[in-house]
């Protein structure tokens, strides 16, 4: 990124840049090396029988399983099902959480009335609502998305509200002295002021939406990665469990980086 300017730098600065670059290379190669070592030793120990690949599976067996599932086309149905549920849960919970947080910021009365309810709902382990969800929403995508939303929404409301409330009192006074009404106060000060924090909340939500989705699939599902994991577990097909977990890792990471990219975009506009 500094290719063009390198010519103008002093030798000391070039030396410094070289050191920084070397360090970066070292870290990257160690990271990749570690991954290769884990896979390599796993495979090696499975082959020579140090670990039982029936219980622990092995990289080659996982890949075979993935290829099998992919060739039957089944894999993509499962991936799509889970991805769809996760994204839907994420989007609905975030949007709903945002709206509720705005309402709570708006009205102190509402905030105080609902406070104990939110505290109780926040403390409740949402998985306990599983049976109710199945009865109310059936045993399909709907129930799973509702599970994801339940897990996400209270945290979303609480953290967004605290981001809104943390606005500098003097800045609010300034806006009021210039004649701002409440809506202007929100759109021109409180919201843009909280934007950085809101994106951090999205980052947390992206992780949680997978928790909710997989938990939902454990409870009720006919398809999806969570379903594959539970199914694989029941029939003692550990290759299937491990392969599904691996795909899940990749999907969740990809979605996380999507939000990180969004964050970078927002922060760039913020400066």
């Amino acid at each position: 990124m500094t290719k063009k300017n390198t010519v103008n730098y002093s030798t000391q600065h070039k030396e410094y840049l070289r050191k920084v670059k070397n360090k970066k290379w070292l870290i990257s190669s160690l990271q990749i090396g570690l991954l290769i070592a884990i896979i390599g030793f796993w495979e090696l120990f499975a082959q020579i029988g140090v670990i039982d690949s029936f219980f622990m599976s092995s990289p080659s067996r996982m890949i075979n399983t993935i290829i099998e599932l992919a060739s039957s086309g089944e894999l993509f149905t499962h991936i799509w099902t889970t991805l769809y549920e996760a994204i839907l849960g994420f989007v609905i919970a975030t949007a709903l959480g945002l709206i509720i947080a705005i309402a709570l910021w708006w009205s102190e009365t509402l905030r105080r009335v609902l406070d104990p309810y939110i505290v109780v709902l926040n403390a409740l382990p949402k998985i306990a609502l599983g049976p109710l969800i199945i009865i109310w929403f059936g045993s399909g995508t709907k129930a799973i998305v509702v599970m994801a939303i339940l897990i996400l929404i209270i945290v979303t409301i609480l953290s967004m509200l605290s981001a809104f409330m943390s606005c500098d009192k003097d800045k609010i006074l300034l806006m009021q002295s210039m004649g701002a009404n409440k809506w202007q106060l929100f759109t021109k000060l409180v919201f843009p002021n909280a934007l950085g924090e809101l994106v951090s909340i999205l980052k947390i939500n992206v992780g949680l939406t997978w928790v909710g989705t997989i938990m939902g699939e454990y409870l009720v599902s006919k398809a999806g990665l969570g379903y594959l994991i539970v199914y694989g577990g029941t029939v003692f097909n550990l290759d299937l469990v491990m392969a599904s977990t691996l795909i899940l890792c990749i999907l969740a990471t990809a979605m996380y980086f999507g939000v990180v990219a969004l964050e970078k975009y927002v922060r760039k506009n913020e400066t």
Partner: peptide
């Protein structure tokens, strides 16, 4: 006309 306020901090909006 209304009064204009000036505070201890500049309170300019960074965005």
């Amino acid at each position: 006309n209304k009064c204009g306020y000036m505070f201890q901090k500049d309170h300019l909006f960074n965005w």
